[in-house]
């Protein structure tokens, strides 16, 4: 059986969750590997959530928020961006491949973009293999 990655998608309520919803209502077919957790803002995403997901069996984590400047809460996505920059470095030291944890901007109208990000991420993680196996 081929390995199917499990991806946790933590999406902001206003842009990315709506964008993902649009992908659905627009009947866009995309990889079913992403499992979505809604938060109010990408600025709500505590790096603990990402680590918790990886620990809990996820093979990848997608954080998605509004495009810079479009945050419903003005600047939450900038905080997500800052945390992600530092988290990336820390994850690198933990040996977590960059493809496993991504921060993307998806607006409410970008259903197709959401779908293509999920597809791309799924392909890349499928090539990497499961994360659990690499766990001690």
């Amino acid at each position: 059986m081929t390995f199917e990655p499990k991806i946790v998608g933590i999406l902001c309520n206003w842009c990315s969750y709506t964008g993902a919803d649009l992908a659905g209502t627009a009947r866009i077919t995309y990889a079913p590997n992403v499992r979505i957790v809604r938060v109010m803002c990408s600025g709500r995403v505590d790096p603990t959530f990402v680590l918790h997901a990886l620990r809990g069996g996820a093979d990848g984590v997608l954080i998605a928020g509004c495009h810079p400047g479009d945050c419903h809460y003005q600047a939450g996505n900038y905080k997500a961006m800052r945390r992600y920059e530092l988290l990336k470095r820390v994850l690198d030291q933990f040996g977590v491949e960059p493809a496993r944890v991504r921060l993307e901007w998806v607006s409410a109208s970008e259903g197709e973009r959401f779908a293509s990000i999920v597809n791309d991420m799924t392909d890349k993680i499928r090539a990497l293999g499961p994360f659990k196996e690499a766990q001690g």
Binding site: K6, V8, R35, V37, R44, D46, F49, G56, A58
Partner: peptide, 14 residues
């Protein structure tokens, strides 16, 4: 959307 709820949800989807 408190920590407990989000973490439980993440556990759930994982």
């Amino acid at each position: 959307f408190n920590d407990r709820q989000v973490l439980a949800e993440i556990e759930g989807v994982c």
